[in-house]
Structures are given as C-alpha cells and as structure tokens.
Design a protein around this nucleic acid. Structure first.
Lengths: 138, 138
DNA sequence: CTCCCTGCAAAGCTTTTGCACGGAT
DNA sequence: ATCCGTGCAAAAGCTTTGCAGGGAG
C-alpha cells in the first residue's frame, strides 16, 4: 500500500481509492495482461463500487504516466500490463488465450536495420505471434 | 472486368455490381491499404450507390475467400489489402500515414525458432514498425 | 424460381465525454 | 477552499445484423 502510494505520487497523480485498487490489481500475482473489462470485473469481485468509465480514465492516465503499457492485440479490446521497464514482445496461445512474453535482441536489431535501410528510425513497434501448442498443431 | 468476374466465380461468390466495384478499387494503382471507410468514399467518388454495410460485408467475404488480408493496425479501423500470396510485414510512417511493406526471412526464421523453443507452432503473426523519417527524427 | 445479395436503419461493443457531486491536498 | 477525480448516463466511433425488396444463376 505504501508502495502504490509512492508510485502515484511519483507520477503526480492524486492518491485516490480507485487508482490504488486498480494499481494493486495489476501488481497481484497471476494474469498480467488485463483489459478494462477484466479490471472492472475484478473490482466488482472485490465489492468495489468503481465505475467502468473511471477504469478507462485511470488506465489511460497510467499509460500516459508510464505505469502501464497498452497493447492492441486482435479482438477489439485493448490490453494493459505493468511497465516493468524491459521491452518485450508477445506470443498468444490461440487455444487458451494465454500470453507469453519473449525478448529477441536479434529481431530487434534486424528491425532497426530494415527501418534504417528505408531511411527511417523506429518510434515504436508491435510484434505478436499467434501460436498453438506443438503437439496438437494442425 | 473479365479478370474480376473470374476471381469472384473462382471463390464461389455471385458476380454482383458491389463486389465487382470493390474488387476493382483494390486493383487500382495507388494506395493498396484501405479501410472500409476509404473504400466507401471511393465508391461515392465514383457515383456508386453502395451502402457502407455492404462494403463491410463484402470485405469480410473477400477476407474469408482469401482475396483480401485484414490488418488491425493502431487506430481502431481495420485495414485491408489484396492478398498477393507473398507474406510481408509493415512499416508505418507515423508522420504521413504511409504504409511500407517489407520481408525479412531472418526475422521469420527467428520467430519460428522462438515459438518452437516454447513448444509452440506459429499460426499467424503480426509485425508492425511505427517509424519516422531519419532526417527529421527527434 | 429460388436463394443470395443489398440498402437502410437499428443495434452492438468498446471507449470517451458532459455534468454535477464529492474528496484529496 | 480549491481543483481534481468520480459515478452515471449519454454519446461517439467502428462494425454487425434484421428486415424486406431486388437480382443473379
């Protein structure tokens, strides 16, 4: 709780109940990639009376503050996760919906080379692999 | 026109006016990545009286038939392009909105290695680089 | 002649916004 | 005491769907 309070102060946001609870949900063990709806449902499960609009507003503020990273995977709903500083890409198990993170210095390097060869510098990038367990692949 | 007719017959879709015109728009020179709204505006410019709902339906059918590929880039709107058989990734110039295509066998290979090392097989993947011209980069 | 296709309008879904009240500093 | 933050409801933006008339095979 002290930790979350300081985190919010650090980024210049008032320490309010909804912000604390939402931040705590992301810091819980378990699933780290949550949609606004996921967060809202968890709040409901905790008997919290926090509106969905507030969830959206807080997620947007946290993203702007660098606390969360937003991803636009397929399926319409944006997904958020804590920004732990280290960039990584994602692999999504299409059977279970599970999200696996990975890092590849080689791919990062190749991306920069490709952009450079076209006269560009990379501002941001998105790499998502949609995968299926090897054993039961088609 | 003969070409489009055969293409539609080949995939088992009735040859209707809306489908012909939409297919022709994708086969025109120029921009190859279009949103449903883009297609609709082009139809309007050609004095065609085709509803936006039909555009969405036809794009969905073309995607299912393998004529078009759908991409979910950032910004909410889905983007479609002709499926010319060869897989490629995209680079988006964030200043101009221009879309550049590229292919990297090395990245493809690395992706498969990474998936395999986690016990998975790739079903699909999405790689998008958001770039800025080198000369006026921040 | 039979379905498939289409335009229109309405509905769906995710996300954003206006407003007035309430709470943090 | 000030603003900022919040809940609620309404609105917005993209896409899908129900319906009844029209057209392709």
């Amino acid at each position: 709780m002290e930790q979350e309070t300081q985190e919010l102060r650090r980024v210049g946001l008032k320490v309010t109940h909804p912000r604390m609870r939402i931040l705590q949900i992301f810091e819980e063990d378990g699933i780290h990639h949550l949609t606004a709806e996921d967060v809202y449902k968890k709040l409901l499960a905790y008997q919290e009376d926090i509106g969905l609009a507030t969830v959206y507003r807080v997620l947007t503020q946290f993203e702007a503050a660098g606390i969360l990273v937003k991803h636009n995977f397929e399926g319409g709903q944006a997904v958020y996760e804590l920004d732990r500083g280290q960039h990584h890409d994602h692999m999504i198990d299409v059977d279970s919906g599970k999200v696996i993170e990975f890092v590849s210095e080689e791919i990062e390097k190749l991306q920069h080379q490709i952009a450079a060869s076209h006269g560009y510098v990379i501002e941001d990038h998105s790499l998502v692999l949609y995968v299926r367990p090897k054993s039961r692949s088609k």
